[in-house]
Amino acid sequence: MNWCEYPGWVVGSEVFQNYGCRMFGGLWITLQLVAYSVVLGFVLAIGLAVTRLYGPRWAQAAVKGYTTFFRGTPLLCQLFLVYYGLGQFRLFWTDIGLWWFFREPFYCALLTFVINTAAYQAEILRGAIQSIPRGQFEGALSLGLHRWATLRHVVMPQAMILALRPLGNELIVMIKSSAVVSLVTIYDLMGATKLAFARSFDLTIYLYAALIYLILVEVVRRVWDALELRLTRHMALR
């Protein structure tokens, strides 16, 4: 018996045992998708947040439009627009040699998730940077620090601690939202579960999937709590 069949065997569920391997394979897809998109989204979000705060006027307006658009519309709709909508221009993508990217549902989902989470993370970072007291900027200026040095060595370390909790929430939201990729033929945890249900008509499989998601979210939450405790140990918060 494979390791992935054990959980189903332990709880005595035949469906969960039979589809255990598919579901844990799906879980791995979910984890990959979320990890890549949150990390890439974070990199993009730093650029967006800094542009939104210190960029030229037109760039600020552009970033504001970007965040409003992606935070104001459903992820599902964005995903369909990218996967089906952009896939419509097949000839164009073939011409510029990008069809391999837009053909794959996984890459389309990844692209959608990156631009979506970047919008949310940019707003989180902007809020965190904005709540750093003016005195910190003035102090850095009086020490002769350049603008970028101020941002890098003075503002960001403090802002990241403020942003930690909302960023953890965003990670959890992404884990949950990633279930929608099952609607564009990706066999993530949700997709594998739907397949198991379609073949077995046993509803309990959805409950086991819910349990796996719940454990995943709970683990992330605890790790984040520990991380926060560790990173703020120099602050007399406790």
Partner: peptide, 22 residues
């Protein structure tokens, strides 16, 4: 709150739609 904040909305929707039906 732990359960319904931790489970994807799509899954909750399926569970309620099919589950309550059964």
């Amino acid at each position: 709150t732990t359960v319904f904040r931790g489970v994807p909305e799509l899954l909750t929707l399926y569970i309620i739609y099919f589950g309550v039906q059964v």
